[in-house]
Amino acid sequence: MKESVRELMQRFSLEPLEDNLFRGQSEANGQRSIFGGLVAGQALLAASMTVPEERPVHSLHAYFLRPGDIRRPVIYDVDRIRDGKSFTTRRVNAIQHGRPIFSLAASFQVEEEGARHQAPMPEVPAPEELETDEQARLRMADRIPKQFRDDFLRERPLSFRPVTPRDAFEPESREPVKRFWFKVGDTVEADRMTQRALLAYCSDYGFMGTAMQPHDMTFWQSNVQCASLDHTMWFYDDFRVDDWLLYDCQSPGAAGARGLTFGNIHRRDGVLVATVAQEGLMRLRPGEELV
Rank of each mutant, 00 (worst) to 15 (best):
L38M: 12
G24T: 12
R23F: 07
I75Q: 11
S26W: 06
D77F: 01
Q25A: 13
Y63S: 12
Q42L: 12
Y76W: 09
R55D: 07
R55F: 12
P56M: 08
S13Q: 15
S13C: 15
I34H: 06
V78N: 04
A40H: 07
N20R: 02
P73G: 07
P67F: 08
P16T: 09
V78D: 12
V51A: 03
G68E: 10
P16D: 02
F12E: 14
L17A: 10
L60V: 03
D69K: 08
G68A: 07
L14S: 13
E18S: 13
S59I: 04
E15L: 14
Y76N: 06
D69Q: 10
S26Y: 05
A62Q: 08
M49Q: 11
S33N: 14
E18P: 00
Y76H: 15
S26F: 08
N20G: 09
G41W: 05
N29Q: 14
F64R: 04
T50D: 09
I75N: 01
L65A: 03
R72S: 13
R72V: 08
N29P: 00
H58T: 00
R72W: 03
F12L: 15
G30D: 08
L60E: 08
A62R: 08
R11S: 14
P73H: 08
V51L: 03
L14A: 12
A47H: 07
R66D: 09
P73K: 05
